[in-house]
Amino acid sequence: MELSNTKKEIFSRLQQEILLLEGFKPLSKGSGSRFGLGKIENAFPNSVFPTAAIHEFINTETEHAAACSGFLAGILKTLMSQGGACLWISTSRKLFPPSLSMFNIAPERIIFIDAKEEKEVLWVMEQALKCEGLAAVIAEVQEISIIQSRRLQLAVESSKGTGFILRNDPRKLGANTCVARWKISPLPSEPEDELPGVGFPRWQVDLLRVRNGNPGSWELEWAADQFITIEEKTVTEIMERRIAGHYA
């Protein structure tokens, strides 16, 4: 009995070590959720959004790509708050830099690389991920093989950089070593305080695959420079109303 207990301990310790190597750094106490993704971060081991890792985003339509770049901008805002520039590599870039300033990112801190072909995109990404001074590296590619993704994974393991692969219109999803596979789709916005017009951007966030974690699906909104998961919002709204009612 005792033997199995020590074994378990060893297992869990080894698991923790592996997680650490894979970029799941446990949160130091009291620092709270770094990215403000709320419940979504619970899907990851140690409940932390992995940074020294490669994330994969699946965009089947241009509208998804737009939603995805919004979500990504929200993540980048946190990553770039430490200083450090970003590299955005693609073959046919549509991202409109001024839109990033809506997510509180200085667009001049993003360096765009327009590669000739996908192979070159991945080569540039690998070089960039080896560089320690960058906050994040984003690459738009259609396909990525398991070997290519492993090379990128090796690069981030030494530099502790964060990579994002945006797969626009992929033919087949296939297997790779990315830490998480996301899909961001647009959702109808909710009018804010009964105001007419288009509200804050709102997305359906699907975490299709996550290494050692629990996939899931959430609704997320970007308002007042932060992510708000929808349930949270309704709860706080109810609370606010209740308080208002109480005092009324």
Binding site: L87, I110, I113, W123
Partner: peptide, 28 residues
């Protein structure tokens, strides 16, 4: 790193410029 003044970044961009061409690197 401290953003664009980072030496690692400058070195990376030099490598990229020499391999794929400086005209492929843009900043707005």
């Amino acid at each position: 790193g401290c953003g664009l003044a980072d030496k690692g970044l400058a070195e990376l961009l030099d490598t990229l410029a020499n391999k794929i061409g400086a005209d492929k690197i843009h900043r707005y």
